[in-house]
Simulated scan of single mutants.
Amino acid sequence: MTEKRKLKLNLQHFAAQDFPEGNLQTVPNLDNFKEKSIDYVYRFEESLKSFQEAIGISRMMPVQSGMTIELMGKPTVDLADGNVAEGEIIPLSKVTPAVKDTKKITLKKYRKSTTGESIQTYGADQAVSYTDDALIKEVQKGIRTDLFDLVQSGAAQTNLNAANGLQGALATSWGALQTIFEDDTIRVVVFAHPMDVAQAIADKKLSLETAFGLNYYTDATGTVVFTSTQVAQGSVYATAAENLVIAYIPAGSSDLGVQFGLTSDDTGFIGMKHFLHNESLTQQTLLVSGVLMFPERLDGVVQVPLTETEPVA
């Protein structure tokens, strides 16, 4: 009886084993989603930087979520008499800022979920990466929409030197803005509908460049012309590059970014992460962004209607 109860030793169990074992889940393997986050953050922010450089925006303003930004008009200056006798009290001049509109900047949150079945069927690159690209493009579109809405709603229409086609509109824009910003050296930026510039591009055989999902070219005068279907057809809208500001909520370095492990670069335009939701067998994409591009002075934006070019007799 005693002999029957003896257990056989599993000598193989005590044999020397090689480590690490095959198919071990390692940190580089499991950090793949984090690498994707870094990649997408980099692409988004490089795209926005390219737009910033192309348009000539040099003013960056990190802000807190919920901050109200004031869009200004031309200030009123009550200038006192500067002819003051020696020893007399110099009278005060008064400058009254004109607030034309306000805009609150908030942190926007986006999430996308990819099922394990779709990853199994199409592979991670197609199921996750392809749809992440589409998500990023829509976020970029939303940022551009805010800019174009502000530019078009605040533009003052000008009829100086009645525009004669696109070239006339660009010249009128340039002249009007030189008058508005007469004390500053400015670079003129124009936003127009693609159909309004299509013929000019064809005639001049211009080559278009791309930044932040927008096509643009630089006119001979140095005016940068951006095209977008989000701009109403029939007019061009122009302002000075120095009048445009990018306000953003730092997503990566903030307490929020640290607490939720968001990936970002040093600009902090967006924060992003990928993570697994085991209960639903899905891979989640989380993206937060608070970016607002706006013209600081609304009176520094002009609208120039286009007219048909008269045929040559």
Rank of each mutant, 00 (worst) to 15 (best):
A156D: 11
M67H: 14
T158R: 01
S264H: 08
A124T: 12
E86W: 13
A127S: 07
S264P: 10
T267E: 08
D255N: 07
L286E: 10
T185V: 10
G213C: 01
I105L: 09
N10A: 12
D266F: 08
G168V: 00
Q233T: 11
E3H: 10
A16P: 12
T115S: 15
T131Q: 14
L92G: 13
V77D: 09
V151Q: 00
P295Q: 03
Q283D: 13
Q152S: 06
S153I: 11
K205W: 03
L276W: 08
V27C: 06
A98F: 11
T285Q: 06
L150W: 05
P305D: 01
F44C: 12
L48Y: 10
D255F: 07
A124Y: 12
A211D: 04
M1Q: 15
K108V: 09
Q283H: 15
S264V: 03
T307L: 05
D125V: 14
G234Y: 05
Y130M: 14
Q284I: 07
E86Y: 15
D299E: 04
K94D: 09
G87C: 07
S93A: 01
D149W: 04
K74C: 02
L147S: 08
R59T: 13
K141C: 00
P20D: 00
G175Q: 13
T223V: 00
M195I: 09
D265E: 04
N161G: 13
M61C: 05
L147W: 00
G56D: 00
G82F: 15
R187W: 07
V304F: 02
L135N: 02
F14M: 12
R111A: 15
V189E: 04
T239V: 06
E70K: 08
E242F: 04
Q64T: 14
S173H: 02
V291H: 05
V151L: 02
F226P: 06
H274L: 12
E35A: 10
